[in-house]
Each structure stands twice: as structure tokens, then as C-alpha cells.
Design a protein around this nucleic acid. Structure first.
Lengths: 348, 348
DNA sequence: AGTTTTGATGAAAACGTTTACGTTCCGCCG
DNA sequence: CGGCGGAACGTAAACGTTTTCATCAAAACT
């Protein structure tokens, strides 16, 4: 509107007070009479004054911004996560600086470094971070919380979804539904989530079907690898009665392999996935899966981070876990569905 | 690592030069001998010096950050858009400040205002912005580009996807495939995209099937509204041969309505959508749709914004358009598919 | 009435940079 | 040999805040 942006001095002059008083009024510090307060507010409004955040940060040392560094993530997961973080951040009056799509250690390190000084805290989700990474790239005084990470460093709390309990629950459900043999399609070797889910599978099998042989085939989270895994399973001498894939995309790939081979799902073989991606609802048969509220994950991360920033940090439980829920749909054979009147799924 | 963060003074002392020289070296301004340069670099490295961005912004007036304010968007669209922007921004050495999930004018206005001073430019996607909004909430000297907006203000260039051409092409395709009558499921009344797509539908029909009567039913972009629209269409005296929904979710809803009624797709009625969301590939029959590279949209927006920021903001063509492509799948009846060997869809 | 307490206010320092301007030194030309 | 130009470098001002401290008046005590 005006040609030059107004500074605190302009406001002070306009209101006939000192800049100190302006600062006090605008920051609600008290120690000002109602009249000066009114005068300052009026002047500020008239001049469209907005405090310069750079100057403010310089002196206070706070940016009121938190940074999120994320890998090149699968769409839905990404957007839900950001939404959760963003919403919680806004509620706390914080801004969100995002840096995503990192596909290498160096890339992630650069991202973390360039955020230095621009943020009051960080939320990091990256397969590349470990203790060393943090020590080398994070200023020691910068609060950070890790997402979905195996790192157990007391300085950096982490939030994980409860992969093992979720996987365990799903395997239990499959066994309970009457499928005696359950095979598992694994994720990429180095992936933490995959490892945890496999652990859950092993645990459930060991506990509930101790005499059954474990049946684990390789995969890499891609739909195509699920397809290949599906064919591999079909080629086995004794076909499993159910397949539990470490993520939904592989489950879908597997589903296509079965369809192609004329195998009926769930009548001949049941299938279940993990993640509850949007697609799971729309493939046919709709996919039973394990769901985790990703937005909640983001929200929890931010809340934990703000606690850290406010110094309420730590002591004890510095790692939190988010519950996972089994979502029963058609593909596992336990769904009560009136096939005749198939209503549209819930709105997204 | 070190207990206190190093400032430029520390580096100067360590390198036995003045702070001015340190600044010159680190900013590559020249006017320094190779020796001092080396000394400074060594000192900076030893101290793990990182320039304070707040102080830098304060004096230079630049933040090297661009802001994106977005509505509470559909997942996939959102993540793709952010990815496009983020990638392009990083390539230009810019940071990305995100504020999403705004569901009201006041909300969006607040977001824009609080970004003031924190960013060098903004990318705005919001149904609430119009000329007034911008004049009231944007500092006049802050470059901004609008996404998918009807605003035609010379001060704010905008980038739109070519909704009308895309819709036109899809209708043409449906007609060419032999479906004589094409109905249209509209989007929410106030929505710009919806309006443009309707416009494309009208244009194509008027041009290619001038004697056919227009058949437009209401919808609001939700899956459920698509379902209702589908039932409405089935109840018509003379059923259309093809349905073109203003977005994919409605097309999916419509598909379910047809399935429920025992209508075969595409044999009895063809269906097409708009957006090419991930699901489109996975419903059965897979959904023909109009695709636009959302990441490109984000990238273009950022590139345009940086041009503006560098002062290359020229008069004339201040609004750009992004091409849309018809994606032919099974639901429109023109797809050559070997149903016997249905391969898994392309990886995402 | 004199003294202390209280509360509002302003002056000025500090935050860590960039940059305009001086200073110094050296080599070169006249 | 004296002056001059330019390169290298340093000094200090400026950016717009917050915050400490001093000041001062008025109210509250003795």
C-alpha cells in the first residue's frame, strides 16, 4: 500500500512515544497505560506496520519456524504427514519450512545444514539419519525429533508407528479367520519399517502357529515386486492360504498376479497389506490392511518437538509409538459384505 | 559441536583478518588475496561457522525463502505440487515455507500476512483470493504468482491448467469413440476448475454434436455426489451413452452407482474423469481421464516467481497455461486391452 | 512533610551481518 | 623522485528489533 514499509520508529513517531513502548504494546508485555496502548495500536494500524521478522529473530534468537526434512515420499503419506505437522504448527503459531525429496545422504545433510539458523527445531524423516549423521550435521542445541527411525539417541526422541504390533495383529487376524498358512512379502532389506513388520510377522507366527513353517519372499515395496512375489508364491509346492504383504502397493501387485493366474481372492487365497493407502479401498476385492493415522504421526512429532523447544524435554521415555489398526475389507475373507448392494466407500 | 555458535567475528579473529574480509571471502566478492581467502576458509571450517540468516536478511532485505499458501487439498495433488515447487526451489537455492489447509478467507489472509517479511515471494493457490484480497493482504512489493485462479491482475501472473482444452479433448474423444450422447457431471458451483471444465464440455458439444442436447447434472467433486449423479443419470428417460465427470472422484462414485445397478462399463455406458488421480488406474474398469502434470505446475509457478523476483517481471503475457492430456483406459471403451493377461499397471 | 515504593516511559546497547568509505601499501608513470 | 592509481584490507555505519537500565512522576507509606 504505502511506498515504504513502516518500521517501529515510524510507529513510535506517529504515536508520539518511544520505540520501547511500541515494542511493549505490540508484544503485550504490559507496563503501558491504556492510552498509550491505544495510540500505538492506532498508529500501527494506520501505517500497516508489520514487525520485521528478521530483526526480531536476530535479537531474540528465535525464528518461530520449524523445519521438516523428508525423503522423496509416496504421495499420500507425504501429504498427510505435512498436513498433520502444519495444522499442529499453526495452532502453536509456528511456521513450517519444508525440504523434501532427498534421495541421498549428502542431499539430506545439505538440507539439514541449510536450515541451520532458520528454524527453532526440526522434524526429520530419513532413512539416512543415524547417530553419526546427527552429530555431524545438527547443531547440538537444536531440538529435533526423528520420525520412523531406529536411532535410539537420548538427545533425539523419535516417534514410530507400531509396525510390529500392527503386523502381529494382522497375522493374528488372518490366522483367526481360518487361514492356516500365512506367507509374508518382505520390504527392502535396509528399511526399518520393513524390518519391524517382518518382526511382527515372525512373532505372531511363532506364538500362534508355532508348527507352521515361515514363508517369507522378497520384495522392495514396489507394486512390481509384489507382482513377482505373487507369482513366486503361486509356484510353491504348497500354496499358502493367505499372504501378508509388508505394504499395500505390494499387496496390490500380488493381487494382480493372482488375478492373472485365475486365483480367486479371498476364496482361494487371502491377501492383506500395510499402510491403508487410498487405493486399498478401491481395488477389487478391496484390500484388508493395517492403518496408521499419518496425520497424527505428524501432529505428535510437532507436539513432542515443541515440548523439547520449551525445555520440557526428556528424562526417560524419549521415544513414542503410534498405534496401528487392522482394517478388515474384502481381500482377507472375513468381511461381511452384501455383494448385491455395494455402496460407494466412505468419502475421503 | 562447539558450545557457542561462532559468529563472523570469531572467524575474523581466528583468521587474523577483519570481519569485512571474512564476509568478502564467504560471499565470493573478490578483492582478497588467495592467502587470506584460504585462511578465512580454514578458520570458518574449523569453527563450523554458519552465517546467521536472520542478520543477513536484516541487512540485505532478502530471505531466500518463498512461501506457498495452499488450501486443504486433496492428497495427491498437494504432494505433487509441493514436490514440483520444492525441487525447483532447491535448484535455485531457495527455501520453501508452506502453509496449507486453509478453509476460509480469514484463514488464508492470516497465512499470507504472517508470511510477510519472511519470504521473498509467494505462490498462492486458494479459491478465496481475488483482486481485493491481494490488495488488502499483500505488500505491494512482494512478488506473487497465483495458481489455478481466475484473477487477471497484471500485477499477479497466474498459471492455470488448461481445463477447457482438456475437457474439450476428452469430450471429443468420447464422441469419436462412438458414444453419441455425452452427459456431464459438474463440480461445485463456485469452483473455477469446474467452471472451466464445464465450458470445455459445452464448447466441444456445441462444435462436434450441435444437435445433441446438453445433459448436465450437479455434483460437488465428492465421490458421493458422483454416486448420486450416476443414479440420477440412470433414472433419465434416455440414458446417455457416456458420462464425463468433472473430476475423478465423482467418476468413481458414478462407476459404483452403475455397478450397483448392473450397468456394464464401458459396454453400456462409458465413463471418464478429470485429474488422473492415482486411484484412476486401480478401479475396475480402470478410469479414462484427463491428466495434468501437477509437479510441472508447481515448477512453472516457481520459475515464474523467480523471474518476477529478479525483476524480469514484464508486461504482457502474465498468465500461463499448462497442457492437459487425455489418458485412455478401459472405462471409455476405446482401450485396447488384452483382458486375459492383465499386467500390473505401471509403477507409480 | 519527607521518604520510599511503584509504575510508566525513554535512551541506548546489543544481536550478526553487509557494505560504503577510508586507509595503507605498492608499483608505475611522468 | 614525487605523485597517482589501484588493490587489499579495515573501520564503522546501518538494518529493525528487544531488552536492560535509568529516569521521573505520582502514589503510598512513615
Amino acid at each position: 500500500m504505502t511506498t515504504k514499509k513502516a518500521t517501529i520508529k515510524d510507529v513510535a513517531r506517529e504515536a508520539k512515544v518511544s520505540i520501547a513502548s511500541v515494542s511493549r504494546v505490540l508484544n503485550g508485555l504490559g507496563g503501558v497505560t491504556a492510552e498509550t496502548q491505544a495510540a500505538v495500536r492506532k498508529a500501527a494500524a494506520r501505517l500497516h506496520y508489520v514487525p520485521d521478522s528478521a530483526a526480531r529473530s536476530l535479537i531474540t534468537g528465535r525464528t518461530h519456524t520449524i523445519g521438516a526434512v523428508l525423503p522423496d515420499l509416496y504421495g499420500e503419506f507425504f501429504s498427510e504427514l505435512i498436513r498433520g505437522i502444519d495444522l499442529a504448527a499453526r495452532a502453536k503459531g509456528l511456521h513450517l519450512l519444508v525440504s523434501s525429496s532427498h534421495d541421498g545422504v549428502e542431499d539430506a545433510a545439505a538440507a539439514v545444514r541449510t536450515m541451520r539458523g532458520r528454524v527453532d527445531g526440526m522434524i526429520i524423516l530419513s532413512e539416512f539419519v543415524d547417530g553419526d549423521f546427527l552429530d555431524h550435521n545438527l547443531p547440538s542445541d537444536l531440538p529435533a525429533v526423528l520420525l520412523d527411525s531406529p536411532v535410539d539417541n537420548p538427545r533425539y526422541p523419535s516417534i514410530n508407528m507400531d509396525n510390529v504390533a500392527g503386523a502381529q495383529a494382522m497375522v493374528k487376524h488372518l490366522l483367526d479367520t481360518g487361514h492356516a498358512s500365512v506367507a509374508f512379502i518382505n520390504g527392502p532389506a535396509g528399511n526399518y519399517d520393513a524390518q519391524q513388520r517382518e518382526k511382527g510377522y515372525r512373532a505372531a507366527m511363532g506364538q500362534l502357529a508355532p508348527k507352521a513353517k515361515l514363508n517369507i519372499v522378497a520384495g522392495d515395496f514396489s507394486e512390481e515386486s509384489g507382482y513377482r512375489a505373487g507369482r513366486e508364491l503361486l509356484a510353491q509346492a504348497k500354496r499358502p492360504r493367505a499372504v501378508f504383504a509388508a505394504n499395500d502397493m505390494m499387496a496390490v501387485g500380488c493381487l494382480y498376479a493372482f488375478k492373472e493366474a485365475g486365483i480367486r481372492v479371498p476364496e482361494d487365497i487371502a491377501i492383506a497389506g500395510f499402510d491403508d493407502i487410498l487405493i486399498a479401498r478401491y481395488v477389487s476385492p478391496s484390500l484388508s490392511t493395517v492403518s496408521v493415522s499419518i496425520a497424527d504421526l505428524g501432529k505428535s512429532a510437532l507436539l513432542l518437538l515443541t515440548e523439547l523447544m520449551e525445555g520440557k524435554g526428556h528424562a526417560g521415555s524419549n521415544t513414542r509409538t503410534l498405534r496401528c489398526d487392522v482394517v478388515v475389507r474384502e481381500s482377507c475373507g472375513a468381511h461381511q459384505t452384501n455383494v448385491a448392494t455395494k455402496h460407494p466407500p466412505a468419502l475421503v
